Computed example of a mutant assay.
Amino acid sequence: MQVTESGADLLALLRELDDPQWLEWPTSYDRSAVAARFGELVARLEGDFGVPCVAEQDTQDSSEYGRATVPAEATVCGTRIVVCVSKFGSLALVCAENPGAYLGTQDAQEEGELDDADLASVERALVELGFTVVPEELVESDYDGPSRAHLYGQRPTWWDRFFGTF
C-alpha cells in the first residue's frame, strides 16, 4: 500500500502545522479526541495482528502523543513494528524495531526486517482511522522551520519538531 500523499505534499503539511507559539501541541489540540483515536488504532492493530499491543500514551513534554507496538512474534519477519502518533494533525510514523533503527521502512524491508504485508496492514489501519502517514525518511530530514531556536541539537529534524521532547 502506498502512502497517498507525495513527499512535497507531506512537507507542505508539516510546514503548515509548524507554529513556534505552539511547540508541544497545536491550538486545536483535543486530548480526548486524540486519546480515542489512539485507542481505536491500538484495538485495530490488536485485531489485525491477533495479539495484544503495547501502548504508551500521553507522553509529557513531547509533541508525540504516544506509541503502539506490534510485538515481534506477531510479525512475519520477527521484528516489532512501532507506530508513533503526534499531537499534530494526526501525523503518524511507522518504524521497524524503533524510530531510527533503520533509515526508514524501505531500508527495513530491503534488510528483510519488515514484511510488505505487515507494513500494508499497519498503513491501511492508519489511513482508515484518519491518520496521515509520514515516512521516517522525511521526518529525519533537516528541519528548516520557524521553531528552530526551540529545538535541541545541532541539526534539528522534522522528527524533533513533531515527535520529539522539549
Results as ranks from 00 to 15, higher is better:
32 S>N: 09
4 T>Q: 14
76 V>D: 10
8 A>M: 02
23 L>V: 15
107 D>M: 11
70 V>Q: 05
129 L>K: 07
53 C>K: 00
73 E>F: 14
39 G>K: 02
56 E>A: 12
159 W>M: 14
140 E>A: 14
2 Q>H: 08
67 R>W: 03
1 M>V: 09
138 L>N: 04
109 Q>W: 04
108 A>F: 01
33 A>T: 13
163 F>S: 07
10 L>F: 04
163 F>P: 01
5 E>V: 06
160 D>T: 03
25 W>C: 11
145 G>A: 07
24 E>T: 11
94 V>G: 09
137 E>T: 15
27 T>L: 09
71 P>G: 06
81 I>A: 07
131 F>W: 12
39 G>Q: 07
101 A>S: 12
129 L>Y: 10
90 S>P: 01
77 C>P: 00
17 L>H: 05
114 L>P: 05
112 G>T: 04
4 T>L: 15
105 T>P: 00
145 G>N: 10
98 N>G: 00
40 E>Y: 03
100 G>A: 10
68 A>H: 03
89 G>Y: 09
142 D>Q: 13
8 A>C: 00
59 T>D: 04
120 A>S: 08
110 E>S: 03
15 R>C: 11
85 V>Y: 08
99 P>Q: 10
107 D>T: 02
99 P>N: 08
106 Q>Y: 02
154 Q>T: 12
60 Q>F: 02
118 D>H: 04
73 E>Y: 12
113 E>F: 01
134 V>P: 00
110 E>Y: 03
148 R>H: 10
55 A>I: 07
70 V>L: 07
43 A>G: 06
18 D>Q: 12
38 F>Q: 05
76 V>R: 11
161 R>H: 07
160 D>C: 10
84 C>K: 04
5 E>N: 08
86 S>K: 06
128 E>Y: 01
52 P>C: 02
20 P>C: 04
38 F>E: 04
35 A>H: 08
73 E>M: 06
7 G>L: 14
41 L>D: 07
148 R>M: 13
126 L>T: 03
53 C>D: 01
18 D>T: 09
2 Q>C: 04
154 Q>P: 06
53 C>I: 01
113 E>H: 13
130 G>K: 03
109 Q>S: 05
47 G>P: 04
46 E>S: 14
33 A>L: 12
3 V>G: 05
13 L>M: 06
117 A>L: 12
91 L>D: 08
2 Q>R: 12
138 L>T: 07
95 C>E: 02
59 T>P: 00
69 T>G: 02
146 P>E: 12
